[in-house]
């Protein structure tokens, strides 16, 4: 039981990091970036390719992996999403085109990884972490502790940034009404660039932590994360940092419980079921107030 709670907490922290990036860009910029999952995988993949050629310390690998995902997301926004936002005035149409472009863009890193690894798992080593015993039949390793702490710390930092800082306030203004915010002197271009960079870096961090924790990822690892991330952010209300944390806890807890009770083949259905139920019954999510303009 203790062991399962630890596993659940680690899963939850990775989910939080991954989903925060997704909810940030969607909440503020109306960009549901469907390449987010693929770029998470791509960060670990880039680090893997680097380790094939040079021997670098883990810290540097993290910088490379996280940076790759951040910069790729930024480029995707600057080259593609911004173009769509500028060209298409109808908000709904722009959202759909963004979604389709994201699906297309996701194919690029996945194909590269498949071609390089011949569609087999890849890892970056660093698997020997000291573990501490907790009670009779549970243990926690340093990497697990690090993941849980990082998830909690970054979630808190992001919540404070959005709610307290000047930039965070500008971000909320843009989310509420981009045009008016721009008239009030908010530099929306710079702000969207920063947001996408942070969003992508969070995906990259999730990918790096995951590849070290699990030992290996596959080129297709990003795909299920994309839908889990989506389930988490709509459960927790789009754009809400704390809502995302709640969504991640719910999904991680349910999944861990199902894995421990069944053979595990039903696990993926949980996030899909959450998506169906939440969108149909409470589209504004658990912390959302009032009527969402989703229907």
């Amino acid at each position: 039981m203790t062991q399962q709670m630890i596993n659940g907490a680690v899963l939850c922290a990775v989910y939080v990091l991954f989903s925060l990036g997704l909810t940030l860009s969607w909440g503020a910029l109306d960009v549901l970036n469907l390449a987010h999952g693929a770029l998470m995988m791509f960060s670990a993949f880039t680090a893997y390719v680097v380790t094939q050629h040079v021997d670098l310390p883990l810290g540097l690998l993290f910088v490379i992996g996280v940076g790759t995902a951040g910069v790729c997301t930024l480029l995707l926004d600057v080259i593609v999403f911004r173009h769509i936002r500028a060209k298409v005035t109808d908000k709904r149409q722009a959202e759909l085109l963004t979604l389709i472009a994201g699906v297309g863009a996701a194919g690029i890193p996945v194909t590269l990884a498949v071609a390089y690894t011949h569609d087999s798992p890849f890892g970056i080593g660093h698997l020997d972490w000291s573990a501490y015993r907790l009670g009779d039949n549970a243990q926690i390793s340093t990497i697990q502790i690090a993941i849980i702490l990082l998830g909690a710390a970054l979630c808190t930092a992001l919540a404070l940034w959005v709610s307290r800082s000047r930039t965070g306030r500008a971000l909320r203004a843009v989310a509420y009404d981009g045009e008016t915010a721009e008239l009030m002197g908010v530099n929306t271009r710079a702000l969207s660039a920063v947001t996408m960079l942070i969003a992508g870096s969070l995906a990259g961090l999730a990918g790096m932590l995951l590849v070290i924790y699990l030992g290996a990822l596959t080129p297709g690892s990003g795909e299920p994360f994309m839908l889990k991330g989506f389930a988490i952010i709509i459960l927790g209300s789009v754009g809400s940092v704390w809502g995302t944390a709640i969504g991640a806890v719910v999904l991680a807890a349910t999944e861990t419980a199902v894995i421990s009770q069944t053979s595990g083949t039903w696990v993926d259905a949980i996030s899909f079921a959450i998506i169906l139920l939440v969108i149909l019954l409470r589209p504004q999510g658990v912390v959302g107030k009032g009527l969402a303009e989703r229907v």
């Binding site: 389930a231 998506i275 989703r294």
Partner: peptide, 27 residues
């Protein structure tokens, strides 16, 4: 219940519907 959803949400719900079916088929 589906057609009253806004575009993006309908897209994701039907996405989820497809993937649930693949899980059902597996099980």
């Amino acid at each position: 219940p589906l057609i009253r959803l806004r575009g993006l949400y309908l897209g994701m719900v039907t996405f989820a519907f497809d993937l649930i079916l693949t899980v059902v088929a597996t099980n």
